[in-house]
Computed example of a mutant assay.
Amino acid sequence: MGIKKEIEIRCHPLMSWDISNPILSLKSRTKEDLKLLSELSKQNNWEVDFAKELAMSYQTLVLTDLQQTILWVNAGFQTMTGYTADYALGKKPTFLQGEKTSEKVKSRIREKLSKGRRVSETITNYKKNGLAYDCLITIIPLLDSNQVITHYLALEREAA
Results as ranks from 00 to 15, higher is better:
residue 65 D to C: 02
residue 63 L to P: 06
residue 65 D to I: 03
residue 78 Q to G: 02
residue 45 N to C: 09
residue 40 L to N: 07
residue 139 I to L: 04
residue 153 L to M: 00
residue 131 L to T: 14
residue 39 E to S: 11
residue 97 Q to Y: 06
residue 17 W to D: 14
residue 115 K to D: 08
residue 133 Y to T: 07
residue 86 D to I: 08
residue 125 N to Y: 02
residue 17 W to C: 07
residue 16 S to E: 11
residue 129 N to D: 15
residue 38 S to K: 12
residue 136 L to T: 07
residue 115 K to P: 00
residue 18 D to S: 00
residue 24 L to E: 14
residue 128 K to A: 10
residue 134 D to G: 07
residue 19 I to P: 00
residue 140 I to G: 02
residue 126 Y to A: 01
residue 53 E to V: 14
residue 22 P to C: 05
residue 48 V to R: 05
residue 65 D to N: 14
residue 18 D to Y: 07
residue 3 I to D: 07
residue 20 S to D: 13
residue 116 G to V: 09
residue 49 D to W: 03
residue 124 T to K: 03
residue 32 E to W: 01
residue 88 A to W: 01
residue 32 E to I: 11
residue 139 I to S: 04
residue 119 V to T: 07
residue 100 K to L: 13
residue 35 K to L: 13
residue 104 K to R: 14
residue 78 Q to S: 11
residue 52 K to G: 00
residue 71 L to H: 03
residue 71 L to P: 01
residue 21 N to M: 10
residue 13 P to F: 02
residue 129 N to A: 03
residue 87 Y to G: 02
residue 21 N to T: 12
residue 32 E to M: 09
residue 80 M to P: 07
residue 117 R to T: 05
residue 20 S to M: 14
residue 128 K to F: 02
residue 160 A to N: 11
residue 31 K to V: 08
residue 16 S to V: 14
residue 124 T to D: 01
residue 17 W to F: 15
residue 129 N to Q: 05
residue 53 E to I: 13
residue 73 V to E: 01
residue 99 E to F: 13
residue 31 K to N: 13
residue 84 T to I: 06
residue 29 R to W: 11
residue 106 K to M: 13
residue 94 T to V: 12
residue 86 D to Q: 15
residue 19 I to R: 04
residue 22 P to L: 06
residue 4 K to F: 01
residue 39 E to L: 10
residue 149 I to C: 12
residue 4 K to E: 13
residue 151 H to M: 08
residue 57 S to R: 07
residue 71 L to M: 08
residue 61 L to P: 05
residue 37 L to M: 12
residue 117 R to G: 12
residue 11 C to S: 14
residue 100 K to P: 03
residue 120 S to A: 04
residue 52 K to N: 09
residue 6 E to R: 09
residue 85 A to C: 10
residue 2 G to E: 15
residue 21 N to V: 08
residue 108 R to L: 15
residue 5 K to D: 14
residue 73 V to C: 05
residue 130 G to A: 13
residue 158 E to C: 09
residue 37 L to T: 06
residue 151 H to D: 13
residue 98 G to L: 09
residue 123 I to W: 01
residue 23 I to R: 14
residue 118 R to Y: 02
residue 146 N to Q: 14
residue 151 H to W: 05
residue 150 T to K: 11
residue 85 A to W: 05
residue 113 L to M: 12
residue 62 V to R: 05
residue 62 V to T: 10
residue 10 R to A: 02
residue 2 G to L: 14
residue 44 N to F: 04
residue 102 S to E: 03
residue 75 A to F: 01
residue 38 S to E: 10
residue 126 Y to R: 03
residue 103 E to T: 11
residue 156 E to M: 12
residue 128 K to R: 12
residue 45 N to D: 10
residue 147 Q to C: 11
residue 57 S to N: 13
residue 69 T to C: 06
residue 35 K to G: 00
residue 100 K to M: 08
residue 64 T to P: 02
residue 47 E to S: 05
residue 103 E to G: 08
residue 144 D to P: 08
residue 20 S to P: 04
residue 112 K to I: 06
residue 29 R to T: 04
residue 143 L to M: 12
residue 73 V to K: 00
residue 14 L to R: 08
